[in-house]
Design a protein around this nucleic acid. Structure first.
Length: 232
DNA sequence: CGGTTTTGACCCGCGC
DNA sequence: GCGCGGGTCAAAACCG
């Protein structure tokens, strides 16, 4: 029996540049929750306040919101990136991102192409393979550390593992996951630090284009109840 | 039986 | 050009 890991105990959040260079991130104190909603200091890697990281943490650590505020929140559109609030956030992420996508071959575009190609049955395997390995472009990507006995954190999304690699200078392998949602191309990497084996480094790449099912399951009855109470 | 995990092979970028 | 390391593919195995 152990305590299931959550995002309420992140050790630190850092840009992926540090991970790409194979360096372990410098130790940082746990960031305040507000800080998690800010972009990291060093571009071009952008912090993606894509749910549920920030929201689940908020749910665990923040006191409940005032009931009268809740009826104005459209959780569905918020979680799917449609609301004014999330568009404000996405403005932070998408502005520079657009420039990066135009300045290099966008991996998001490349993946769309590849997905289209995947659907074409008679395609030459090698052609598809080579096109799927187009030059990597920058996507919204960030990593953070979590102290946990489990490598897999329950973030509310469903993931399918598609690879595992041994990491140089580390006794622990790195695992590669892809979001199982058919329209979503978000990936994540999970790796345990060899320096501090209690810390798991999770790297997210991309932004979910669909709501978090688990979070919605949890929030919907709560929201309804609060909306009911708010009428009095 | 369908979805997920495992794992060896393959591809690509980069440094020398 | 070559070797290395990282990322992905895909067939087989596994599992509920």
């Amino acid at each position: 029996m152990h305590i299931p890991p959550t995002f309420s105990n992140p050790v630190s959040i850092f840009s992926h540049q540090q991970m790409d260079q194979g360096q372990e991130p410098p130790p940082q104190p746990p960031p305040p929750l507000q800080q998690q909603l800010l972009p990291p200091l060093n571009p071009p890697y952008l912090f993606t306040p894509s749910l549920p990281y920030s929201s689940s943490s908020s749910l665990h650590q923040h006191p409940p919101l005032e009931p009268q505020l809740l009826p104005d929140i459209d959780w569905v559109s918020l979680l799917s990136g449609q609301s004014s609030l999330s568009s404000g956030l996405s403005e932070i992420n998408n502005g520079p991102m657009t420039m990066m996508e135009t300045s290099s071959s966008s991996s998001a575009m490349a993946e769309n192409i590849n997905r289209d190609e995947d659907q074409e049955k008679g395609n030459n395997k090698m052609i598809r393979k080579s096109s799927s390995r187009m030059k990597k472009a920058t996507r919204p990507r960030f990593a953070f550390q979590t102290r946990s006995v489990d490598d897999i954190l329950d973030d509310g999304y469903r993931w399918r593992k598609y690879g595992q690699k041994a990491v140089k200078n580390s006794i622990y392998p790195r695992s590669y996951y892809r979001c199982t949602h058919h329209t979503c191309s978000v990936k994540k990497q999970v790796q345990r630090l060899s320096k501090d084996t209690s810390i798991v480094v999770t790297t997210y790449e991309g932004t979910h284009n669909h709501p978090c099912e688990k979070l919605m399951e949890t929030l919907t009855p709560l929201l309804k109840q609060m909306q009911f109470l708010a009428r009095f």
